[in-house]
């Protein structure tokens, strides 16, 4: 064997890596449903968040490489890149260059992401209530915007 790693050998290696990891991934990640109206990147993001919430992925855990995740789920690698980047922006993940993506330590997630998540749930319930009372989208939006304008411009 030539002591050289060209792209071809990387391919083989990645396949070899995929076999045992595949099993692990399949317990954490499911193949996104491409035909649903929800973009694949949103589905994947939800899966990662869910895995962190349920503890399937613990802080400090390494996420699969872009390529192996793309191969395992058979989705576009650019989608994986986008998800990792956005989750990094939300401080859910930490990207260490040359090493890969890791679940951020809980300090960060607790303070920001989980807070936001709770707020999102509150908001969702709130909008549902208004909707059930017969208000339509435009009305809710206008009310909200008026309220926000008032509150933040006063400051």
């Amino acid at each position: 064997m030539v002591n050289r790693t060209d792209s071809g050998e990387w391919f083989l290696l990645s396949i070899a890596r995929t076999v045992p990891l595949c099993y692990f991934y399949s317990t954490v990640f499911r193949k996104p449903n491409p035909s649903s109206g929800v973009p694949i990147y949103v589905q994947l993001k939800e899966q990662i968040r869910h895995a962190i919430e349920t503890g399937a992925l613990a802080p400090g855990d390494q996420l699969p490489g872009i390529r192996s995740l793309a191969e395992t789920l058979v989705i576009n690698p650019n989608t994986v890149i986008r998800v990792y980047r956005e989750l990094e922006g939300e401080k859910t993940l930490e990207i260490k260059h040359g090493l890969g993506a890791f679940v951020a330590s809980r300090r960060n997630t607790n303070s920001k992401t989980e807070g936001l998540r709770d707020a999102q749930q509150l908001m969702r319930d709130f909008v549902h209530t208004l909707k059930a009372q017969g208000l339509d989208e435009g009305e809710i939006r206008r009310l909200l915007e008026a309220e926000l304008n008032e509150m933040f411009q006063e400051r």
Binding site: R67, E71, V74, N76, P77
Partner: peptide, 14 residues
């Protein structure tokens, strides 16, 4: 088909 798509994805990530 799934195999072919997987190779496509793999080449794309290269």
């Amino acid at each position: 088909i799934e195999e072919v798509l997987q190779i496509v994805v793999s080449l794309a990530s290269e």
